[in-house]
Design a binder for these strands. Structure first.
Length: 428
DNA sequence: TCTGGGGTCCTAGGACCC
DNA sequence: TCTGGGGTCCTAGGACCC
């Protein structure tokens, strides 16, 4: 048996743990830049606030109903997430962290699952303050459906099996894990609208309509496991991008934003002990502003050698940006992807073992490894914070005390209660 | 005025090899 | 007049997830 443990309204619940007066008050949490709603309390859902709706569209409703609004506080949510997982680990041998608020648990051969699930649930609530629901099923896909049902039960625990007719007959196909908007539309066009109908469709037809991917989902729904437990794999790509707080026109400003995203991405890569083989830079105008000219482009290529050196990656990124930047557009977003990540030490080294060679004008330029510089940068950041040091191009952020035009909007940020001493709650 | 960010997997098609 | 077959690797694009 597989269990899916899912935190209820996770980001909203995190905000409530440290601000109990928000109980029973509708609250929403916003995406970066205070753009869209990405989490809602039950009260906010009841007001009809949809997932993903832009903030500006519900401004009036928020005022009218006294909805409390929060900017996203990922430092807090990330820390709360690892607390929840550490409680779950005490109960079970095998756990797969699927996302910031969901974990799969392997319950094969474990007895008394209902009691165990309830105990797990109440312990997580007691020790972390976060309410969770537990879905039980023979496959991950069934456990997902069960979790859906569990959320609506006072007990917070539910089991769905392949022949739970009542669980499947009213479930729309697009609520099955792995079936999104496009596949659901294709299925509806051949008369399949519910999970039960989908389950009872022949495997051959499913394959014809949705390929092997959908066939696996179909098998899982019928109780045959296709998705096994996965151990955490090193990432293959790292992406860092942000929409700008305001539109940006100057190359210098885009460079400055890109440079700060490159630093972020490289730090993440180094923390995982990886090196990148390639890089991609992309640049977008505002797709919603249809009255102004649109321009979207990207440029990618291999790095001169697999590297996790900040300056090498930053220079390459800037070269790609210059290639695609066009004057006369109002830009909304820039981003960088580090591609083809591999564990450090396994990469194909250049011919000269202790130096990095690069051909230029027919001669080999020898660059000394910059490992010590990279280490020094990391140490400064760990001691003095992310703002303490940055690449020259990124320094505009603090020029003359003004925020850079591209910096994020974040107007309703809660304290980082669990990760910063100065944000610790004081109990009278 | 105001619309997020970060991932994975699969497939088709092109380049290239013998 | 007549021009093969089988394979790999890479990339772009499309689908999905939270």
């Amino acid at each position: 048996m597989i269990a899916l443990v899912d935190c209820n309204n996770f980001y909203a619940s995190c905000e409530r743990v440290f601000s109990p007066k928000l109980d029973r008050i509708p609250i929403v949490v916003l995406s970066n830049n205070d753009g869209c709603v990405v989490a809602r309390s039950n009260e906010a859902k009841a007001l009809g606030i949809a997932m993903g709706v832009p903030l500006f569209k519900i401004k009036a409703l928020i005022k009218e109903e006294g909805v409390r609004v929060f900017s996203s506080n990922y430092e807090l949510y990330g820390d709360m997430s690892s607390r929840v997982v550490s409680v779950l680990r005490r109960f079970v041998p095998e756990i797969e962290i699927y996302s910031i608020d969901e974990s799969f648990i392997n319950f094969d051969g474990v007895p008394n699952l209902n009691e165990l699930s309830s105990e797990m649930r109440s312990t997580v609530k007691k020790w972390t303050g976060i309410p969770v629901s537990v879905g039980l099923g023979d496959t991950k896909t069934l456990a997902k459906i069960a979790n859906h049902k569990a959320k609506k039960k006072p007990s917070g625990v539910h089991r769905t099996s392949a022949d739970s007719i009542e669980d499947l007959e009213h479930l729309p196909v697009d609520e099955i894990w792995g079936i999104g908007a496009k596949l659901a539309r294709r299925l509806r066009s051949i008369g399949i609208t519910t999970a039960l109908q989908f389950k009872n469709t022949s495997a051959a037809l499913v394959r014809k309509v949705g390929g092997v991917v959908m066939e696996r989902t179909h098998q899982e729904l019928n109780g045959f496991r296709c998705f096994e437990f996965e151990q955490p794999q090193p990432r293959q790509n790292i992406c860092c991008s942000r929409s700008f707080g305001r539109r940006v026109e100057k190359l210098q400003d885009v460079e400055s934003a890109l440079s700060s995203y490159v630093s972020k991405a490289v730090r993440k890569m180094r923390a995982e002990g990886s090196v990148a083989n390639g890089i991609q830079v992309f640049l977008n105008t505002d797709r919603f502003n249809t009255s102004s000219p649109q321009y979207n482009n990207s440029s990618s290529g291999r790095l001169p050698y697999p590297s996790s050196d900040l300056l090498t990656v930053a220079n390459e990124a800037n070269r790609h940006l210059k290639r695609i930047f066009r004057k006369g557009y109002s830009y909304k977003k820039v981003g960088v992807l580090l591609l083809g990540l591999a564990p450090e030490g396994q990469q194909q080294l250049p011919l000269f073992a202790n130096s990095i060679g690069r051909k230029k004008n027919g001669r080999i330029q020898i660059k000394v490894r910059r490992e010590r510089l990279n280490e020094a940068i990391e140490e400064i950041i760990s001691k003095l914070g992310k703002e303490a040091i940055s690449l020259g191009r990124a320094s505009l952020k603090r020029n003359g005390g003004h925020r850079a035009p591209w910096s994020l909007k974040s107007e309703n940020l809660s304290p980082k209660y669990t990760t910063r001493w100065e944000d610790l709650l004081i109990v009278k």
